[in-house]
Nucleic acid binder design. Structure first.
Lengths: 357, 357
DNA sequence: CTGTTAGCGCATTCAT
DNA sequence: ATGAATGCGCTAACAG
């Protein structure tokens, strides 16, 4: 017979240490102490079935005394719906503001559903994505929210078929049909260009990430579309791609402005690129001469001088929407897959109002 | 007999939908298809025991064909060490830079240990802390890293005794003995004050959070200690506490500077307080007259003008250290509890070099 | 090297 | 309203 935890003071002898932990009480222990069956303990814990007040009382006392904490893994292993109360959230980098804010928004919705969130960073690494998705399904998460690093997501079909819903954020699914929640990237980029054009600019540069990144491609599309609609030429010398860090963006900005056909305004299609461009402008002492509109708001954008005008994404809304879609499917909803667009918003500050010169 | 997944094309009939998922293959299915025992499948998967090449081959093919993914919950339920490959990370707010950076650092170490991280926000809410700790232990996490919101952490003793190690970050444990990893808060604050004094300041104000927050108390202690050691009076009119948001910090700054005994320098003991103070200074047009040193670095601190001097914490190091301590204990290490100090670093930029006037 | 039996902790099905 | 038996998917302890 195995030793039962007593709830009272430990018997004399060696103190428990980390290496010989006190065994956690199980339902059997509770049942034995309360003098009832295991099933009755289960009933008291899960509610549902009717239980007499007396039995409930006895069981509750035993639970208290033994500090019993039901093992959820065992529970969901046996239970018919198999729900684990765990979801996975796989983003680019939990440390960056976009991912971190999204994480928080998803956590809040999950919390209301009694669900814990496995958060992971993909680092634009397809293999890491595969590993983390697998790690998640091995633990039978109830669902996955993902901003994928891979280009083809067909491999997720089997998970979806096995009953694990997947919702995409920030990037659209390829190779499978699934719910996804995206910012209006093209429209937001268009708004940025129109704002600069409104202030008299014609030579507007695009500084962005590699076009293999879908959001970057969408924002470029918004830029070129707006330029065309305005009757402005898209000068290839003013389009710089492949920028993903502040350093490269700063260098590109400096090169652009010292070239033979300099722009009078910059549209920077991403956070770090914006910061790099602003840094370069400050270095050149020209931050009040060249207009800037950035995609993505960032903390302190309104403390810089000039204050930086941006197209802001509603990141909490993206996260909350994705989480709601996911929990809907976890609950059994099965409507056709939805594509949700979360509007961006032009936040007019100062840097976009600088006139051409 | 239950229906076996075939691995081949699905039989005719209604297509599988989200509501009637295809059952995931189990070891039994794999064993049946490979014509071996369940235990042999387990051996192939877990390595360890010697297995003939032929058997390994047959099993591997069956696993492939059925897309078998072992259920880790069932595995750790049965296995003797009970390891789940899950830890909990409970921080103040996953969306703020400190928590987000810590999260990422912990994730990286966990990833190397094949472990997933439940990340949660406590929001300075003791009840939320209790709920999240309980949610974590119900899922039998292998360990917990926590920056607690409660004042007394004695309730964690039972978890530690039950074999779930706990490591504290950013705040020291009270009511139990446990590993903890803290920045050198008092020393960092002292460095800030000494730097300002070096530049001629004597009337140095302290702007900080409520002293019930231990880090705030430590930083105040560093401030007063340094002032005393310098032979400078600690003027109570220059000590403002209870500041936790930018708005309040800005208001306090404005009030301080328009009072009858204004400071010539500010030591702001937290991120948001620093930003609030800088905002207020800019609003008054006095950002080049009043010196500032802040505790905690923040993005773009070096893009502001003047660039903001700060005492920076080494957040990735805090996270990595905490994670290493935790995984050590999970692996069975049981040394006396350690208190780790992670040094802060004075990042001299411009705002601390402004002379008194 | 391989298989059989038992049981992790719990919910389910069926009995009473 | 309560309990006994069964099994979720897997590994441990023992066979052979």
């Amino acid at each position: 017979m195995r030793e039962l935890p007593t709830g009272g003071p430990p018997p004399s002898g060696p103190r428990p240490t980390g290496r010989s932990p006190v065994r956690r009480a199980t339902m059997r222990d509770v049942a034995a102490l309360a003098g009832v069956s295991v099933k009755s303990v289960s009933r008291v814990i899960n509610g549902g079935d009717a239980v007499s007040a007396d039995l409930r009382e006895k069981v509750s006392r035993a639970i208290e005394r033994l500090d019993f904490q039901p093992n959820l893994a065992a529970s969901s292993l046996r239970r018919s719906d198999g729900v684990t109360g765990q979801i996975a959230l796989l983003l680019e980098d939990l440390a960056n503001p976009f991912s971190a804010t999204l994480n928080r928004a998803v956590e809040d919705v999950a919390h209301r559903h009694g669900t814990l969130v496995f958060a992971g960073s993909l680092e634009e690494d397809g293999n890491r994505e595969l590993a983390l998705v697998r790690a998640s399904t091995l633990r039978r998460v109830d669902g996955i929210i993902i901003a994928p690093a891979t280009r083809d997501h067909g491999y997720l079909n089997r998970e979806v078929r096995a009953g694990t819903p997947v919702v995409f954020v920030d990037r659209a699914p390829r190779g499978l049909s699934a719910d996804h929640v995206l910012s209006t990237n093209a429209e937001g980029a268009r708004d940025a260009v129109l704002h600069l054009a409104d202030n008299g600019h014609e030579r507007i540069a695009y500084l962005g990430d590699h076009p293999s990144i879908p959001t970057a491609a969408d924002r470029l599309r918004g830029y070129t579309g707006a330029m065309r609609d305005l009757g402005l030429a898209v000068d290839p010398r003013l389009v710089v791609q492949g920028l993903s860090a502040t350093g490269a963006a700063a260098a590109a900005t400096t090169a652009l402005l010292s070239g033979d056909a300099p722009p009078t305004a910059l549209f920077t299609s991403q956070n770090l690129v914006t910061i790099g461009a602003v840094t370069a402008l400050q270095g050149l002492g020209r931050q009040r001469e060249v207009a800037v509109v950035g995609f993505d708001d960032f903390p302190l954008a309104d403390l810089l001088s000039p204050k930086v005008t941006v197209v802001a994404q509603d990141v909490p809304e993206i996260g909350a929407t994705a989480a709601r879609l996911l929990f809907g499917r976890i609950a059994g909803d099965d409507p056709p897959h939805r594509a949700c667009s979360v509007p961006t918003r032009l936040v007019v500050r100062e840097s976009g109002l600088i006139p051409p010169r």
